[in-house]
């Protein structure tokens, strides 16, 4: 009897062969999962954000790994039906328990895939306005213009109105200016137009729109609509109305304050008291 005989006998054992084949199945599955993960990431990153491509590629990786594991265990004769049923029940329980988190998770995937909002954009979500700091799978972080960091679950994004101010290359601003009825409206128009035309950040095309929009109680209301590069909206908002006001002042055009003429039916006699100024 050779010393190799027990080894050969062990190797020719059908159970051992099954284990070897199961390991090979799992190994192939593992290799395929790695390849699929890389391919999915490379393709995904061309069309979607990097983090979403990474998540999808990881999901594909674990799904293939799970299939490989169940196939390998099945080859060894381990019955997985009970495990799958138990896993299914556990999944339902965990899913119900983690429903808010899952809602945020899928909302995050949707927001990232659709690129509704992206890092660096200026948005208003509900009543919160600010710059997007981060969009992760579960939360979106906004930095408001007074420096507060607001973190909101992504599920909230799908149930509220999102205004994105960074999608257009230019935005239209609107101002209203009121001039007294006694003033020359055409002169006021010329003064406003000159101020608007001289402002470097007011776009020449589309051309500014200046028109009388209302004959108000106290004065003639002139509406000024201008287009401004998206990134310069705030500086122009601060600057332009102030410049219009100064130009009107310099041109001697008065901006009226609310006034009310009172007509008295019965004649009134005014008497000056002695000693009064």
């Amino acid at each position: 009897m050779s010393i190799l005989d027990p080894i050969l006998s062990f190797l020719s054992n059908p159970q051992f062969l099954s284990i070897i084949i199961a390991v090979i199945i799992f190994g192939i599955g593992y290799f395929v999962a790695i390849v699929i993960r890389r391919v999915v990431f490379k393709i995904g990153v061309r069309f979607y954000a990097r983090n979403i491509a990474s998540i999808v590629s990881k999901i594909a990786y674990y799904v293939i790994l799970l299939i490989a594991l169940s196939t390998a265990l099945g080859y060894l004769g381990i019955e997985l039906t009970g495990l799958i049923i138990a896993g299914g029940f556990a999944g339902i329980i965990v899913g119900v328990a983690l429903q808010p988190l899952m809602a945020s998770f899928f909302a995050g995937l949707y927001v990232m895939a659709e690129r509704i909002i992206q890092q660096g954009e200026v948005v208003a979500i509900g009543n919160t306005m600010g710059e997007v700091v981060e969009v992760s799978l579960m939360f979106t972080k906004l930095r408001t213009f007074d420096g507060v960091l607001v973190t909101m679950p992504n599920s909230q994004l799908l149930s509220t109105v999102i205004q994105n101010y960074s999608k257009a290359v230019a935005r239209r601003l609107e101002f209203t200016v009121s001039i007294a009825y006694s003033e020359d409206a055409e002169k006021a128009y010329r003064v406003i137009k000159e101020t608007v035309d001289n402002h470097p950040y007011v776009l020449a095309e589309p051309a500014p729109d200046i028109f009388v929009s209302k004959l108000g109680d106290s004065g003639v209301v002139i509406t000024v609509r201008v287009w401004v590069p998206r990134t310069l909206v705030y500086p122009v908002m601060k600057d332009l109305l102030w410049k219009i006001k100064k130009s009107l002042d310099e041109a001697g055009i008065s901006i009226p304050f609310p006034q009310l003429d009172v007509w008295i039916k019965t004649p009134v006699t005014l008497k000056r008291e002695e000693g009064s100024g």
């Binding site: 257009a168 290359v169 230019a170 935005r171 239209r172 470097p200 950040y201 007011v202 776009l203 020449a204 095309e205 589309p206 287009w227 590069p229």
Partner: peptide, 22 residues
């Protein structure tokens, strides 16, 4: 020094295209 939009304004409110020095 002035700038202009090269591109269409969709529905009178949505500016697309490029901002350019005019």
């Amino acid at each position: 020094y002035k700038y202009a939009l090269y591109g269409p304004v969709i529905s009178s409110v949505e500016a697309t295209g490029y901002i350019a020095r005019l």
